[in-house]
């Protein structure tokens, strides 16, 4: 039955996910066309586009375009998360919950299917948007520097590699750990975010009235608790690192530690809220 739940969840969530991917891809394509246009060439002062005069207006338009693009990506990310939260509430705790909770499946299966599907789609959308931004940055930079993207990537890799080597030589700090934490964060963050959001929505079920509103308040409360925990543990870690400071210690190590703490707190809250959600759906479900 879990497979069937996944099938229907992926189909339903996928419709919105694919739509947003198409929107993001279309806007990215427009951005790419702009970067390849003579207008952008005139802004960056390329000789072959010198016939088109650069004006303040064209620069402002370019900046406005970049800003709009950034706002659109942020809007898609947060809009998708909000849509997932509302969809979860509707399918679990509103009238549609009457169908969801009378399916011949275990409550944990319902929660796993919804959480994993939402997490996977958030991850897909995030990775796609990272790729789109990187592509646009590389395209813009290649035009500004008048080199091919392949050359740019090669030279950027060499430069970054040299800088990292220098930092390691001078401070003893290796970026391998940071890269691992960053990679794990990227992979796990969508799932922990979904667990926390769905868990908060489920906590709203403890209220007799205005359960949706209580879910939102619970989410804000959980986020505040996470920030407080993060702050306290961050200060504790900083003090500990100062006491252990050696020649090879530096602020980079501390930053890495804070990222790790943030990841662990996210994971802790996600696991706790997921287990709590299972408990509520199994033992305290009270649909109006």
């Amino acid at each position: 039955m879990l497979g069937k739940l996944f099938k229907h969840e992926f189909r339903n969530v996928g419709r919105m996910g694919v739509l947003l991917l198409i929107v993001a891809a279309c806007v990215t394509a427009l951005g790419a066309l702009y970067l390849l246009s003579p207008l952008f060439g005139s802004i960056i002062g390329q000789r072959k586009d010198a016939s088109i005069p650069m004006s303040l207006l064209s620069v402002l338009l370019g900046l406005l375009g970049l800003l709009s693009y950034a706002v659109m990506l942020v809007g898609i990310s947060y809009g998708f998360l909000i849509w997932l939260g509302v969809r979860f509430y509707r399918s679990m705790y509103s009238d549609q919950g009457y169908l969801t909770h009378t399916l011949p499946v275990k409550p944990i299966e319902i929660l796993i299917a919804k959480t994993v599907t939402a997490g996977v789609w958030v991850l897909i959308l995030s990775l796609a948007m990272y790729a789109m931004v990187i592509f646009l940055v590389l395209l813009g930079a290649s035009r500004v520097m008048d080199v091919s993207i392949a050359e740019l990537v090669r030279s950027a890799s060499d430069t970054v590699g040299s800088i990292l080597d220098l930092i390691k030589r001078e401070t003893g700090f290796s970026f391998t750990g940071s890269a691992m934490v960053f990679l794990i964060t990227i992979l796990i963050a969508p799932f922990s975010t979904i667990c926390i959001m769905f868990g908060a929505v489920t906590l709203g079920q403890y209220s007799w009235k205005n359960k949706g509103l209580m879910g939102i308040i619970a989410y804000i409360g959980v986020r505040m608790a996470m920030n407080i925990a993060s702050g306290i543990l961050g200060v504790g870690m900083t003090m500990f690192q100062f006491s252990q400071i050696t020649e090879s210690s530096n602020s980079l190590i501390m930053a890495n530690g804070k990222n790790l703490i943030s990841l662990l707190i996210n994971l802790f809250f996600a696991v706790v809220l997921f287990c709590w959600s299972i408990h509520v759906v199994q033992n305290r479900l009270n649909l109006e």
Partner: peptide, 14 residues
């Protein structure tokens, strides 16, 4: 739940 067929007093379909 596999053996009960339930019609609620409300529209529960998306």
């Amino acid at each position: 739940k596999a053996r009960i067929s339930y019609l609620p007093d409300r529209t529960y379909l998306a």
